[in-house]
Write a protein that binds this DNA or RNA. Structure first.
Length: 444
RNA sequence: GUGGAUGUAGCUCAAUGGCAGAGCACCUGAUUGUGGUUCAGGCGGUUGAGGGUUCAAGUCCCUUCAUCCACCCCA
């Protein structure tokens, strides 16, 4: 029989135990902070009806949506979720009578995109979303920024910035500069590359798209408006005070700034940056994304307001804003910089209980069960070959199990046990009834 | 979708067109109540796949597949 090559599909990954322990550490912090801010868990299916997913993300993104069908189906009527935001909109519309507004939910789950994988980018990846449905004012948007800052700080990052902009402001700038309405999308796409290409690169690309030189110049000057805190907002308002949509945008950002202050968000962790665009089509108001100051990877979180999305599933829309943490990128960086506590990774086992010989298996099993009942994560040694203590120690050492409990005839007879801490080689003998307490002490 | 790089043992990699190798890992023993070190031995291959050139191909040529990196886009 020919063997099937063991491999994962393109862009898909397995997480072995050592990786999973790190992921669970990161996800645990994210979830803890989400709950600290009062967000509730939600789970939705991986498969949604195609109708639910299509037409929400823009043409380019739509090409990356996986469809799914079973063997007896000719056409695919369902597709794999592309993010967690559209499913949320669906849920809100579907269960509105069971939900109390404002609805604050979080969801940590895999999503699927048929992109070409590269560093920190995969076809299946986890998103960690927190969203607020039913609040139109900026206290919601500011809370999300505060939430992101708290998560990222707790994970051990200190040099990072949440860049904040407003879709309405971009539209206003386009109108002021004289960009035709039908070219606004092109404009956004080019401006989005500001980080990589700089002002000159963006200018060149806009020119290529057929936008006039003087328009480009006005636009780029506005985009690059800089200033401490809300100063940049003042400067932009001076120029665009006559454009209602720009004024609306600026007022929203001012309101956000006030709220961020009330929430004590460290000022070095956020700034207004008018070059932030964000790709997804559904954003309508403030938008934000988080970048590490050393620029080592793309954004590690993104979000913004999408007041119209729920309206696709329901007669009246609901004001909604949300944020998504890019946990895969965060983990990529944390792996590279080894930002995990020392006790993360390796194994979950606290103690290995040895088995001296076949006759002694009962005594060892009883000890292991006793430890488990006391809350100690105990592994009972198992093998198909000859039982040898040396091999059992070797096994514990290789797996990174910190403590070995030696249980032999002498110990069984006297109801004692020998505990050995592998890191120090230190060994003590004590009553079996005291073992759990002692192990707990040795683990600290 | 576009461009570049790379595919040899489980992993990391060698091998002028001339016998497919090393290190690590794994298993066994030295060592029948104690791990990391050491020593001895063992397991392990359709050189990604298919075709071509040649007395001879891991090596050269063609095709194809896969992976990685970058672009596009995005978390």
């Amino acid at each position: 029989m020919t063997k099937i090559e063991a491999r994962t599909a393109k862009g898909m990954r397995d997480f072995l135990p050592a990786d999973m322990l790190k992921r669970e550490y990161v996800i645990g912090i994210v979830e803890e902070v989400f709950q600290l801010y009062g967000y509730e868990p939600l789970q939705t299916p991986i498969l949604e009806t195609s109708e639910t997913l299509l037409g929400k993300y823009g043409e380019e993104a739509e090409n990356l949506i996986y469809s799914a069908k079973h063997g007896r189906q000719r056409d695919s009527k369902v597709a794999m979720r592309y993010d967690l935001t559209v499913p949320l909109a669906r849920v809100v519309a579907q269960y509105e009578n069971q939900l109390t507004l404002p609805f604050k939910r979080y969801q940590i789950a895999p999503v699927f995109r048929g992109e070409n994988p590269q560093r920190g980018r995969f076809r299946e990846f986890y998103q960690c979303d927190a969203d607020i449905v039913g609040v139109a004012n900026m206290s919601a948007d500011a809370e999300l920024v505060s939430l992101v800052v708290t998560v990222v700080r707790r994970l051990g990052f200190d040099k990072f910035t949440v860049k904040i902009n407003n879709r309405k402001l971009l539209t206003g700038m386009g109108q002021y500069s004289g960009v035709p309405d039908d070219q606004l999308a092109d404009l956004y796409r080019s401006v989005d590359k500001f980080d990589k290409m700089g002002a000159k690169g963006v200018a060149a690309e806009l020119k290529e798209r057929g936008i006039a030189d003087d328009v480009i110049e006005r636009m780029l000057t506005l985009l690059q408006t800089k200033g401490e805190g809300i100063e940049s907002l003042d400067s932009v308002e001076e120029v665009m005070g006559n454009f209602p949509i720009a004024v609306e945008a600026i007022n929203e950002l001012r309101e956000m700034a006030e709220n961020l202050k009330m929430l004590n968000v460290p000022s070095e962790n956020y700034q207004f940056d008018f070059t932030v665009v964000r790709g997804l089509g559904y954003y309508t108001g403030p938008i934000f994304e988080t970048v590490l100051d050393d620029g080592s990877i793309g954004s590690i979180s993104g979000g913004g307001r999408y007041d119209d999305l729920i309206g696709i599933f329901r007669k009246n829309s609901l004001p909604t804003t949300g944020v998504s943490l890019g946990i895969e990128r965060i983990i990529t960086i944390m792996d590279e910089k080894n930002m995990y506590p020392a006790n993360i990774g390796g194994t979950v086992v606290d103690v290995l209980v040895t088995v001296f010989n076949k006759e002694m298996q009962g005594a060892s099993s009883a000890l292991a069960q006793g430890l488990r009942n006391a809350g100690i994560r105990a592994e009972l040694y198992m093998t198909d070959s000859r039982l040898k203590l040396g091999k059992q120690f070797n096994y514990a050492d290789k797996k990174g199990i910190p403590i070995v409990a030696v249980m032999g005839p002498d110990e069984a007879e006297k109801s004692i046990v020998r505990l050995k801490q592998l890191s120090t080689g230190e060994e003590i003998t004590l009553a079996q009834s005291d073992a759990a307490a002692k192990i707990r002490e040795m683990l600290n």
